[in-house]
Computed example of a mutant assay.
Amino acid sequence: MNKLSYTLSAVALALVLSGCGQSNAQQGQQPPPLTIDVANVQLEEVQSWHTFTTRLEAPERVVLKPRVSGQLKSMAFKEGERVEKGQLLFSIDPRPFATQVESLKAQLVSAEAALSQAQGEAKRAQRLVAKNAMSTEQADQRDATLRRAIANKNAIAAQLEKAQLDLEFSQVTAPISGVISRADVTQGNYVSAGDTALTTIVSDDLVYAYFDVDERTWSKQFAGMNADTGVMVQLQRINSQQPIAGKVDFIDNEINPTTGTLRVRAVFDAQAHNLKPGAFARISMAAETPKTLAIVPERAIGTDLKNRFVLTVDENNTLQYRLVELGERYGAYRAIKSGLVRGERIAVNGPARVGPGMPITPNKVAFNFENTQFVLKSTNTSSDLLVSAAK
């Protein structure tokens, strides 16, 4: 019995010693530090801007109407093509106008003959009155006849000039250079002066973009702006990532009291960028000059109540808590006004899996700014057109 008791005690003691050994071994095996992405803080030139939506407009748009009435004889252009100022577009039957011109020319010749006769009789009357061979009353009658002949000649000359203008207006020409639309009236139809719309022409050298800036934004960000300085703006079209440079060339002289906004206009080179009037566009206008700030990924920023912070990596590869002041956001990145300097290492993915005081194994990565715009870039494309338009 005693022998069995001693045996059980020995087995129990061995099990206890074995368990203690395993526990000590487990305590000695610490997990390796977590591997996280780390990047060096970079400095970039950044600026703040505001974006406004609008539709583009042509500086010149003409709804072409005839200046004389008549039957449309022919159309001398191809719909949708570019036309030059003074180019023949429509022809109204000129025969009635040509006939009127010839008739008035004949009347003018008759009036000039009557005037010549009246002038001769008036001169003879003056000589006869001087010799007391004609009464003053008769001389006055001849002088009145002369004045009537002058007036009649002048009236017919004016009618002839108008008839010649009507004949000229029967050939309808382009009042501006630009792109012409389709013909709204076809050959053989009767058109009325000042009433029938023949077609539409829009200028195509430049396009305007009108947009409204609310009073608070204007007073805070743009109060010192002057249209004479040609402030740079950028245009973004639908489904296009390529910005188009333009300039502000007009600022209205008063704030609209109904909407509380100020009307601003920017001008762009239409031909260089194939811009069409009526197209939807976003206009970006810089609110400040560029300045250099630290840039970090938006996901690297954590929130601690009202504070914003990032996790920096010290020389011992330990994460440290760092308060930062945020600037503007630029795509996937955020400008930092204060709290970071160039070259400091930060946890790229922020505090999602880690926290301050944790040791890490850094995996160095680099920021990719290729598709991120930090400032409104200027271009020299069509600068002559834009400068002249801004003036």
Rank of each mutant, 00 (worst) to 15 (best):
I176K: 04
D212T: 07
Y208S: 04
S240H: 10
I201L: 13
R263Y: 01
S284R: 10
D269Y: 08
Q271F: 05
F169N: 11
K220V: 12
K276Q: 13
M285L: 13
T259Q: 14
F268L: 09
L167H: 06
R263I: 00
A272I: 08
S284H: 09
K276V: 14
I180R: 05
F222K: 10
A272M: 09
W218S: 05
Y208P: 00
T200S: 11
Y208C: 01
G278N: 05
G230F: 05
A279Y: 00
A223N: 10
V233R: 02
F250K: 15
R263P: 00
Q242Y: 08
Q241E: 11
F268G: 04
P257F: 02
I255R: 01
D205I: 04
V185T: 09
A197L: 00
V231N: 04
N274S: 11
D166M: 02
A287Q: 01
P175H: 14
L235H: 03
V213N: 02
L206M: 14
T261I: 02
A266I: 07
D269S: 15
Q241V: 07
T199G: 01
A279S: 12
P175K: 13
T199P: 01
D212R: 09
I176N: 07
M285S: 02
L167S: 05
D214I: 06
I176E: 04
Q221V: 15
L235M: 14
N239R: 12
I251D: 09
D252P: 02
